[in-house]
Design a protein around this nucleic acid. Structure first.
Length: 227
DNA sequence: CAATGTTTACAAGACT
DNA sequence: AGTCTTGTAAACATTG
């Protein structure tokens, strides 16, 4: 599917085969995207991606295991699955709890330590980012760093790779950024962010960037990028 | 106050 | 062997 906000060279530079915009605006046709070149850098990272065909994100849950057994998936995996299974690819903390309990009965009627671990993982791992406040102002939506969506949606939750990818996109840590994922009302006609008009001074973005994740690699995000 | 979020510490395994 | 990842625990801050 065409993504008219990002030209192919820009996408290539980013090493991303889709963006959060893609996820928000092209629901339903997921998974049919071409592979990213991604040839470099990732070399020795194992390729044991068995989690392949979980197209619908739901059904695989705890499947064959005894529901009372602790899931073998890491917290990163559980949180990511919850988020990716949501309509808008973002969830409140309480919804993440709920999804995990719904899909992994092990966590039901368990003490709260696992919730502490969930919060700990959300805070600690760069692959999880805050995506706006909740409606009631209490807490944030949590989303997956766009640089990780591709891997995570394939069931590849390796953090080392995840971290490298984030840094390769942003050139720095993901925080602090003032605006995350405000993209819902983005006009479809916006021109490609990575190819500004010729008259535009270099390094001076002329138009609003819709999420820091879509910033070109060669231009480090700054506060001005979001205003 | 309870829920949420951040941070530190430590141990066990996995990885390089 | 050193580093990284993951899970667990816990202290503490923030927020409604």
């Amino acid at each position: 599917p065409p993504d008219n906000s990002i030209c192919s060279s820009g996408r290539e530079r980013l090493g991303l085969s889709f963006t959060i915009d893609y996820l928000l605006f092209n629901k339903g046709s997921r998974g049919s995207r071409e592979e990213t070149p991604e040839g470099e850098s990732e070399r020795s990272e194992e390729e044991n991606e068995e989690g392949e065909g979980k197209e619908d994100g739901e059904k695989e849950s705890s499947s064959s295991e005894n529901p009372q057994d602790k899931p073998t998936q890491s917290y990163i995996a559980l949180i990511s699955m919850a988020i990716l299974a949501s309509e808008e690819k973002k969830l409140l903390l309480c919804d993440i709890y709920q999804w995990i309990m719904d899909h992994y009965p092990y966590f039901k009627n368990k003490d709260k330590n696992w919730k502490n671990s969930v919060r700990h993982n959300l805070s600690l791992n760069e692959c999880f980012i805050k995506a706006g406040r909740s409606d009631n102002g209490k807490g944030h939506f949590w989303a997956i760093h766009p640089a990780n969506i591709q891997d995570f949606s394939k069931g590849d939750y390796h953090r080392r790779r995840a971290r490298r990818r984030i840094r390769s996109v942003t050139g720095q840590l993901p925080y602090p950024f003032p605006t995350l994922y405000p993209a819902v009302h983005r006009p479809r006609s916006v021109q490609c962010w990575c190819c500004p008009p010729a008259h535009q001074p270099i390094g001076h973005p002329a138009r609003i960037y819709w999420s820091w994740a879509t910033l070109p690699v060669h231009r480090a995000p700054t506060l001005h990028s979001f205003i």
